[in-house]
Amino acid sequence: MLDWSMSTPNSGPGTGPPLSASEERTWAMVSHIGVLVAAWFAMGFLCPLAIWLLFRSRSEFVRRHAVESLNFQISLLIYSAIAFVLVLITFGLGVLIIVPLIVIGAVAALVVLIMATMAASSGNEYRYPLTIRMVH
């Protein structure tokens, strides 16, 4: 159990010593590939959000990767909501177009997710395509 009475103003989530280069690459990778675990619960954005909240002040590299992954996941949610609305508006006929687009989009999302994870592993930056950048 945590003793909050002993905490300092700079303690809590997101604070602590800077991360080592190895830790930075590991957490940056997790911000991308961890989405696959969270996606099983239709909450793919939770993993990069948690990593961003926990490590944003400890590592600029991890912050950038987590924000990029978070923005991509939010963009996917927005695109999915638009697809759902289009299906409703067309009384289900939009399914003929939307389903193939969802399959193609899912494969493309998996490919860019793997590319982002590999970039993080190498210590490089990655920018997801077709991403609405709302979180900075």
Score class of each variant (00 low, 15 high):
134 M>F: 14
24 E>L: 02
49 L>I: 09
93 L>T: 15
70 L>S: 08
75 S>I: 01
11 S>D: 06
81 A>P: 00
34 G>T: 07
116 A>H: 04
17 P>Y: 02
40 W>R: 15
107 V>S: 09
21 A>V: 04
53 L>Y: 11
68 E>P: 06
37 V>C: 09
46 L>H: 02
93 L>D: 11
111 V>L: 12
109 A>T: 14
17 P>Q: 01
29 M>W: 11
66 A>L: 11
70 L>E: 07
89 I>P: 08
41 F>I: 05
61 F>H: 04
82 I>V: 11
72 F>Y: 06
39 A>V: 13
76 L>Y: 09
62 V>E: 02
92 G>E: 05
96 L>N: 14
108 A>S: 01
68 E>H: 05
111 V>H: 15
20 S>F: 03
77 L>H: 03
132 I>S: 08
29 M>I: 15
29 M>K: 12
36 L>V: 14
65 H>G: 08
27 W>N: 03
122 S>L: 15
62 V>M: 04
122 S>F: 12
34 G>L: 13
81 A>T: 01
69 S>W: 09
41 F>G: 05
28 A>R: 03
33 I>N: 12
72 F>E: 04
118 M>F: 13
8 T>W: 01
33 I>W: 10
44 G>T: 08
51 I>F: 04
90 T>G: 13
34 G>A: 11
7 S>N: 03
130 L>H: 03
69 S>Q: 10
60 E>A: 02
87 V>C: 15
7 S>L: 08
64 R>E: 09
18 P>S: 00
104 I>R: 04
26 T>N: 09
124 N>H: 10
46 L>F: 03
71 N>D: 07
56 R>T: 13
28 A>P: 05
136 H>M: 13
70 L>T: 06
129 P>K: 01
